[in-house]
């Protein structure tokens, strides 16, 4: 039988106070994952004496996109992300990822921070943010530290967040100059579907060539990572030098290099290859290259 005491914090200070004073505290945000665990009487509740509801903490909410830097509060819901005109204009792939998560009811409650901290292998918030090179601000009573998002997850459902820390916000550099992006997701149905595969591509281009690029997949590897070989292949290439199909093959090889041959590989290899090929093709097309 699950038993815990429910605490409600109304300020960040209060959150940090409780995290310092009490042991075995589990933070509760939107609850769309944790409440499922509760229903299933997940054994993890054996290590939880307190559930700390932070949904009322205003400091953890909000989207700020400056010319150089951007930040998203950890408690920002997916609904807020996808309805934000700023996100839509400047970082559409974040909005696309948010809109692909759950249902309207889920998006109204579920937070981007919760998605990251829960760290499911198929979590859809990772790949767009990793493509941005995002860092997480993890705060405890003593201060804050920054962790690169791609280093945040150790293995599925396990992150480097410490017991006395809370994820405060996600910070990143805004893409500069001419840039293009895309987000693709394959699920088993058209809505409320866990990703079989997802892919974010974000590229800064200049003079018909790739200046910077990040190709990041979700659900392809146990922890989401940028495809370094693909990025290497594409970086500094002129559009004419790029073969999208080859980029796809490199990504597929890289994925299998990380995961090894798994039960799902016969499907994921060709499908990922195709997603990457399409993302690169779309990029070239959007950038006006008709080669």
């Amino acid at each position: 039988m699950v038993e815990y005491q429910l605490l409600r914090a109304h300020s960040l200070e209060e959150v940090l106070e409780i995290l310092t004073e009490k042991k075995k505290v589990q933070i509760l945000a939107g609850g769309t994952d944790l409440m499922v665990d509760l229903h299933q009487q997940d054994p993890k509740f054996e290590n939880i004496d307190y559930l700390l509801d932070i949904t009322d903490v205003a400091e953890l909410k909000g989207i700020k996109l400056g010319p150089e830097e951007g930040e998203i509060g950890a408690l920002t819901t997916h609904a807020e992300l996808l309805s934000s005109p700023e996100i839509k204009e400047k970082l559409p792939f974040i909005g696309a990822a948010a809109s692909s998560i759950g249902s309207t009811q889920i998006r109204n409650r579920a937070t981007i921070g919760g998605n990251l901290v829960n760290a499911a292998a198929c979590a859809d918030s990772f790949s767009p943010l990793i493509a941005l090179g995002a860092e997480l601000v993890l705060r405890n009573k003593g201060g804050a530290r920054r962790v690169l998002l791609e280093d945040f997850v150790e293995w599925p459902n396990q992150t480097v967040l410490k017991d006395n820390e809370v994820l405060e916000k996600i910070v990143f550099k805004m893409p500069q100059g001419e840039y293009h992006s895309s987000y693709q997701k394959i699920g088993r149905r058209n809505a409320v579907s866990i990703s079989r595969l997802s892919l974010t591509l974000l590229a800064e281009v200049e003079n018909e060539a790739i200046k910077n690029i990040q190709v990041v997949s979700g659900a392809a590897t146990p922890a989401p990572v940028p495809f370094r070989e693909v990025n290497k292949y594409l970086t500094a290439k002129t559009f004419a030098e790029i073969d999208p199909a080859e980029a796809g093959e490199i990504a597929a090889d890289e994925m299998v290099g990380i995961t090894g041959e798994r039960w799902s590989t016969p499907y994921k290899r060709p499908a990922l290859s195709k997603l990457v090929e399409r993302a690169v093709k779309d990029l070239l097309e959007e950038a006006g290259y008709n080669g």
Binding site: I186, R188, W263, S264, P266, Y267, P270, A271
Partner: peptide
């Protein structure tokens, strides 16, 4: 499903 349509057979965990 996805697997049967793409590779002609199902895959199981």
């Amino acid at each position: 499903n996805l697997e049967r349509v793409l590779i002609g057979r199902a895959l199981h965990k």
